[in-house]
Design a protein around this nucleic acid. Structure first.
Lengths: 125, 125
DNA sequence: TTGACATGAAACCAAATGGTATCGTAATTA
DNA sequence: TAATTACGATACCATTTGGTTTCATGTCAA
């Protein structure tokens, strides 16, 4: 799988659904490899490799505790993703396309996050 | 390459650096395949396949004009990415990690986009 | 209408990816 | 001390991915 050769980037790391599940799982609490693997049907080794990819991208940190290795989320590299996305903010600011997709979203926070950045500037006045 | 079998998702589509370059390029204006390829060193066919992946993810739209095919950006699917990212907002709200990476960013809009969502709720009071 | 242009489709290839099973080793516990 | 647990390392495998070259087809222009 991902042979930690030369640093995976965050874009590649989150491309895999299993790794996105891992990030979500570790968002709740720090967990050992065995416990983590218990949440997946694939082998422990496979999960471990995915964790390695995430670690390469800096999205998780590991800590040895006795014979187990605890992994925890480090969301910091996601800021790069957020930065990249910000280049496209201008395309959906004040656009109906924002409503088009999430008008019936069950998560109110989602709509809030779509409010245009311009709001901040208005507040600063 | 990407054999358009069963719909590529946006996470996979943006994982490749070439495809991110394509999105950036098409953000400025609609362009034909040949013109697009002129911006890359790889073959036209290779570029065309990347465009196919992006089209599968809904990130670009194509339109036949005579003998050429014009591609243009459709940023709408990026909202899914934005939605996914919003699940991690809570981790860097009011955190120094926000400053840690971009304190010397040359783009002021970047820092603005990092202001916490909570600001909105306070405004509602 | 004849040739040049724009593009997609195929066939092919090397390398990366996602997965498995097996083994070695350090830490824990009986 | 001996068995068990937790994990990484390795070797291996099938499929996907990113790229190439070649060919077929539709469109435009002389």
């Amino acid at each position: 799988m991902a042979e930690s050769a030369s640093k995976h980037d965050v874009f590649q790391a989150i491309a895999d659904p299993t790794r996105r599940r891992l990030l979500r799982l570790l968002g709740d609490q720090e967990m050992s490899v065995t416990i983590i693997s218990g949440h997946f049907t694939m082998s422990r080794t496979a999960v471990s490799k995915h964790l390695r990819v995430l670690a390469d991208a800096g999205l998780v940190k590991d800590q040895k505790v006795g014979r187990e290795t605890r992994y925890r989320l480090d969301p910091e590299p996601l800021l790069e993703l957020k930065k990249w996305l910000s280049n496209y903010e201008r395309f959906w600011e004040n656009k109906l396309s924002v409503l088009k997709r999430y008008v019936e979203s069950d998560d109110p926070a989602v709509m809030e996050s779509f409010l245009p950045l311009r709001t901040y500037k208005e507040n600063e006045k």
